[in-house]
């Protein structure tokens, strides 16, 4: 065991980790931040996506020790302190972009990653960016719609009202 320290959602946090401790495991079990979900644990599904130094990664396929000293953003840091949802979260609610909600933390973090580099994506660009995020409920239409809406675009003509 050795101590790992990282800045999570703006706060410096430390905990013990083994070499094999995954970032997802460290966030959930050591820091108690269970908003980051583990679906497939094989880097296919994207439920575990978080941002490390501003870039979206699959936290089930990164060692906690690799994030030593890094700035990590998780779903818990997305809403305001008083609980007000951010634009993406609110759009997912408004446009029914989730059903069971299991994939949603990863979807939000991947979508945030896209909108940071491409604030006005086309529908095709949104779908392409979500290739590594699997949802087994929605059929994706309303997720795509929510992300387009959060980017400030008119979504009235997008499929699956």
């Amino acid at each position: 065991m050795s101590q790992v320290t990282m800045t999570v959602n703006g706060k410096e946090m430390s905990g013990d980790a083994e070499g094999r401790t995954l970032l997802s495991q460290f966030l959930r079990e050591t820091l108690g931040l269970t908003g980051t979900h583990v679906g497939c644990d094989t880097s296919q599904c994207g439920a575990c996506v978080v941002h490390v130094d501003g870039v979206a990664v699959k936290s089930c396929t990164m060692l906690a020790m690799e994030a030593e000293g890094a700035s990590v953003d998780t779903i818990e840091g997305q809403a305001a302190q008083d609980g007000t949802l951010n634009a993406l979260q609110q759009a997912f609610q408004d446009h029914h972009g989730l059903q069971c909600g299991f994939c949603t933390p990863g979807m939000i973090m991947s979508a945030a990653d896209l909108l940071k580099s491409n604030p006005n994506p086309t529908e095709a660009e949104v779908r392409h960016h979500l290739e590594g995020n699997i949802c087994r409920c929605t059929g994706y239409h309303n997720i795509v719609k929510a992300i387009m809406a959060a980017s400030g675009q008119d979504v009235s003509s997008i499929a699956a009202e």
Binding site: S43, H129, E131, N133
Partner: peptide
């Protein structure tokens, strides 16, 4: 290659 998160690592 892969998807955006895989390409980031």
């Amino acid at each position: 290659i892969g998807d955006p998160a895989v390409r980031a690592r």
